[in-house]
Amino acid sequence: MNGTKVNALSHFFRGKGRNMVDKQLADFQDGDQVKVFALIKDAQIRKTRKGDDYLALTFSDRSGDLAGNFWDVDEKQEETLKPGVVVYVEGTRSAYQGKPQLNIDDVRLATVNEPNAPEDYVARAPESEDKIKDDLRPFVAAITNPTWRKIVFYLLKQHGEDFFKSPAAKSNHHAYAGGLSFHTLSILRLAKAVCGLYPDINKGLLYAGALLHDLGKTVELSGAVATQYTVTGKLIGHISLIDGEICAACDELGLDQDDMQVVLLRHMVLSHHGLQEYGSPVRPELMEAEILHHLDELDASIMMMDSALAKTAPGDFTDRIFALDNRSFYRPEENKKNE
């Protein structure tokens, strides 16, 4: 991996978000008056039944997201209230169909004298970039098959710093700066544990597939600030993107795309969503591919549940989690970790 590019990423993990209002979005409860600076993560112009425009907005800071509708908007507001800008918003926190929402009273752009830097409102991975790099190295080194090793090294170098600053998703899981590399590392840690229990697993193939499976998200997603799907991401998707890059890497490295080792690695990437209706061109037909699919699902699910439970009082249920079949999860009264 290109050390110069990776070391240059350290500034992405410096500094703390500055907010002139003490509370962050996750601190408010239903019925509370909300007055905060926040990043607009998403903005959609929609129509009321009468045909009037309104903005469906999603606000974000390092504590999480909160959605709300801004009614009776004018053309200037539609033009200026875009994803990626920092605003001052006032309203009331409430709930709709089991999900938190903000009943917006007013929204305006933050001024030059107010905390208006978008990067200050972006959540970051729970581990530092340096630790993620250090912990990834042994997994890369453990890939001894020369074909897989060459392709993994080549593609990680190609993506460079983007791998370490990109989110792993727009909203559901690991949707923060550094989320992609942290999600990848989490899967590799799970893979190591599984390989320790089942010695017949091809560890090198599983590690190589894990390292590459979501690498196309550096192209599919716009970045950590107000993450959106790119045009290329919408039209092609991260699975097809990285499969194409594996083939291109073979051309650059003088490898035969039809070599069985290349085909096995491509299958790991192409099948990791498990089902064709979830975006995989093929279903897993290798043991390592089936394992990668389940580890990917496990890590994403735990992250979503853990994030929701952290915002839930003991004895209550979380808000509904759409990506987990719209279920709520209960946090027991005595929820002591590691017991």
Rank of each mutant, 00 (worst) to 15 (best):
I239M: 00
D258N: 15
G279D: 01
S301A: 14
R266Q: 10
H294T: 09
A248T: 02
A323K: 09
T227F: 05
M260N: 14
E277N: 15
K311V: 03
V263T: 08
P314Y: 05
A313K: 13
L275I: 13
E290I: 07
Q257M: 01
A224G: 00
D306W: 09
G254D: 01
G223Q: 06
F317H: 09
V225Y: 12
Y229A: 10
E277R: 14
A289K: 02
I239N: 00
L295Q: 05
L286G: 02
M303H: 15
E285M: 13
T230K: 09
S307W: 05
H293A: 11
R283C: 11
G254L: 02
D243W: 04
S222V: 08
V282Y: 13
H293Q: 11
H272W: 02
V263K: 14
D316K: 12
L286I: 04
L235S: 13
L253F: 06
L292G: 02
E277K: 15
E252Y: 12
S280I: 08
E277I: 15
L253E: 03
V231G: 12
L298I: 06
I246S: 10
D256W: 04
G223A: 07
M268D: 06
T230N: 09
Q228Y: 09
V269R: 01
D251Y: 12
D256N: 11
M305G: 02
Q276K: 14
G233I: 04
V231S: 15
I242G: 08
E297T: 12
A248E: 03
K311Y: 01
D306K: 11
A249T: 07
G274T: 01
T230W: 08
F317I: 03
P281R: 07
V263F: 00
I321V: 07
L275G: 00
G274A: 02
V231C: 08
H272G: 01
E277Y: 15
E245L: 03
H267L: 01
G254F: 04
I236C: 10
L286A: 00
Q261I: 03
E290H: 14
D256E: 01
K234Y: 11
A249S: 06
L275E: 15
G315N: 03
L253G: 04
A313R: 14
L298V: 02
P281G: 04
L309W: 09
I236H: 13
L270N: 07
D316F: 14
C247L: 10
D259S: 06
G315V: 00
V282H: 02
T312D: 03
G223L: 02
L298G: 06
Y229N: 11
C247S: 13
S307H: 10
M260V: 13
D296C: 06
S280P: 01
S271F: 02
L292V: 05
M303A: 14
D243G: 11
G274L: 06
G237I: 00
V263G: 04
E297W: 10
M268G: 01
A248I: 03
